[in-house]
Design a protein around this nucleic acid. Structure first.
Length: 578
RNA sequence: GCGGCUGUAGCUCAGUGGAUAGAGCGCCUCCCUCCGGAGGAGGAGGCCGGGGGUUCGAAUCCCUUCAGCCGCGCCA
């Protein structure tokens, strides 16, 4: 927006100057930034300090030379050199307020960018095993992943969100889950049945067993039970995620890779590339105290090894177990080939929880072994969520029956608060989710602060309608009517959105959108406190301010939409009390 | 041991190599004849974990060290 245009204009002006002709002047060299202190102007440039060295001049002298050049720009009001060589620029207020026109015009598209070459991105997230409901732990991945998808789309990329269903029939975990369910079904039918060792317990297992007993007999073969119970768990997961406003373009079945022969194909490709073999030896890794000790044994026949260590992994991996069943990584291999090879995604992003660090090395090896450039695949790890209830650390394990489901969380505090809380902190930071605090938050809740600003604007707009101001179109003559520092600050804050979006798309730090929303809400509240919008005796000013306030509403609504939080017309206090 | 992440106000955390370090909560004052007070103004509270380096300039980049959390299966 304004800043980009100025940087472009300024670099153009500089490149015409004989003094600086030798230098390559790009937008980056101009380096406009918004100073923290208002007295330093609307924008400051450090160009003189950056260029001084290569030109062999004094930064302050150079700064005043540059300042003289930029002073010719029509939007510049005053320009001065300060400190070690900063160039502080104050713009004509109308240059700032005229931005309102563009914001109003772009409306719900405001903040979205167009890229000359949109990347085709694949984003996989959540993908929990179909052996339990979505927990509050995976909820972070759901909120983060969905938000990231929305932001990447806004930044101009083509995004395909996919859920990878771990439904392989040869999965040990799923076999154990099916066995556990079968045992519960038998018990319910009054038949004595032992739960397998490390079997699944807990209310949800009983519930799903009960549900399944209505459809099939406990005598059914294990594969049928596994298929049916998976179907039911996935249905429940999907329901929870939809209600949490988390959308997937596709639910991808791991089993389809096995059944369709894609796993076998990928394994063959690896063998051909020389990255897999079944040398008749194998290693055994045992744990001695704190250390892993690897000893070479010579068992025959050995498994098929993926020689991932040569590709940067910490050790080789078993690709096909000694008994001929493919290991989990074989599915990953086929899936990668499917995404980057068959479906031609430019890049594949995989969002994983904190218990998957070990994944990075082997997946990078998988990418390389298949012959893809390493940077076409990227894992993003989010850190642990801990969940506190009544001051206690609440367990989330799936086998002790005491899980906290994502569903329960958003039923308690609402989807808006839950989503906002999940993404308002960097995914790199561990998150303590105190449910009691979240419940009593009410007034202090940052999401309400932002939503309240939006609702307040809607009230103002309704008031304007009542007073006959309606929804005026932006008139350039309004630009000069808005000159209060709070008004100018509000416009500048709104204008930050496009840059926030691009930066988030670069480094995945999506909490910046939440920070933006809170800052914009603050700028609005500050404005609201000192500038009355609807004033009968000043129709022109009122119209101008209505435009400004509508622009602020657009900024808030679009930011909230990016993080999957609603932008309400009004807030009801009674909604806070369940 | 190896690897990942984190260390910023009493607490929870923001922070684009830039000038005097930011918010919320909590604590202490104050502001509604008024478009929603779920708001606003002010106060107290900081060797940005320690040390070195790069730079005109470092909370931010590099190295090192300390502390905390997490991960390292022919499980997925």
């Amino acid at each position: 927006m304004l800043k980009d245009q100025l940087q472009l204009d300024f670099s153009h002006l500089l490149s015409k100057s004989p003094l600086l002709k030798e230098q390559t002047i790009s937008q980056g060299v101009v380096g406009l930034a918004e100073p923290k202190m208002a007295e330093h102007g609307d924008f400051a440039s450090n160009a003189a300090m950056v260029l001084a060295k290569s030109l062999g001049t004094n930064p302050r002298e150079l700064a005043s030379t540059i300042a003289d050049i930029w002073k010719t720009h029509p939007d510049v009001n005053t320009i001065e050199v300060a400190g070690p060589g900063f160039i502080n620029i104050r713009l004509n207020p109308s240059a700032i307020t005229n931005q309102i026109y563009e914001i109003l015009t772009r409306s719900h598209q405001f903040g979205n960018q167009k890229k000359t070459t949109a990347r085709k991105l694949h984003v996989e997230f959540v993908s929990v095993n179909p052996n339990g409901p979505i927990t509050i732990g995976s909820g972070r991945g759901a909120a983060f992943g969905d938000t990231l998808c929305r932001i990447l789309r806004a930044a101009g990329d083509e995004v395909f969100a996919e859920y990878y269903i771990n439904d392989a029939l040869n999965s040990e975990q799923m076999r154990l889950f099916a066995l556990s369910v079968q045992a519960h079904m038998k018990r319910e039918a009054g038949i004595k049945a032992e739960l397998p060792e490390n079997g699944y317990r807990g209310d949800y297992v009983l519930a799903v067993s009960h549900e399944l007993a209505k459809k099939i007999s406990h005598d059914a073969d294990l594969q049928t039970i596994q298929e049916e119970v998976q179907k039911e768990m996935i249905r429940q997961q999907r329901e929870s995620l939809e209600a949490f406003r988390v959308h997937f373009d596709n639910w991808f079945s791991e089993q389809s890779l096995h059944a369709g022969g894609k796993v076998a194909e990928a394994i063959e490709k690896l063998k051909k590339n020389g990255h897999a073999d079944s040398e008749p030896y194998s290693w055994e890794t045992t744990r001695q105290g704190k250390d892993n000790v690897t000893t070479q044994t010579s068992q025959e026949p050995g498994p098929l090894w993926f020689r991932s260590q040569k590709l940067g992994d910490e050790k080789d991996r078993v690709l096909v177990r000694s008994d001929g069943r493919p290991a989990y990584i074989a599915g990953d291999l086929a899936y990668m080939q499917d995404k980057l090879g068959d479906r031609h995604f430019d890049q594949s992003l995989l969002i994983l929880g904190p218990d998957h660090h070990g994944y990075i090395g082997r997946m990078d090896a998988v990418t390389r072994a298949l012959g893809f450039e390493a940077d076409r695949f990227r894992i993003i790890i989010y850190q642990l969520v801990r969940f506190l209830k009544e001051g206690q650390l609440a367990p989330m394990r799936k086998r002790d029956g005491n899980i906290y489901e994502l569903k329960d969380l958003y039923k308690e505090i609402g989807v808006d608060a839950a989503r906002f809380f999940y993404i308002m902190r960097s995914h790199d930071t561990p998150l303590d989710f105190d449910i009691d605090l979240a419940l009593k938050l009410g007034d202090d809740n940052p999401v309400f602060y932002v939503q309240y600003a939006h609702a307040r604007i809607c009230s103002v707009l309704a008031k304007a309608e009542e007073e006959g101001i309606g929804k005026p179109l932006w008139n350039p003559s309004f630009a000069d009517l808005l000159h209060d520092p709070k008004e100018l600050n509000l416009v500048k804050r709104i204008c930050d959105l496009p840059e926030v979006v691009s930066r988030c798309a670069e480094d995945f730090q999506v909490q910046r959108v939440a920070t933006y929303a809170a800052e914009l809400a603050r700028a609005f509240h500050l404005f609201y406190d000192s500038c009355r919008v609807v004033q009968k005796d000043q129709p022109e000013l009122s119209s101008a301010r209505v435009c400004l306030v509508e622009a602020a509403r657009i900024g808030l609504a679009n930011a909230l939409n990016l993080v999957g939080v609603s932008a309400p017309q009004r807030m009801h206090r009674e909604q806070l009390v369940p």
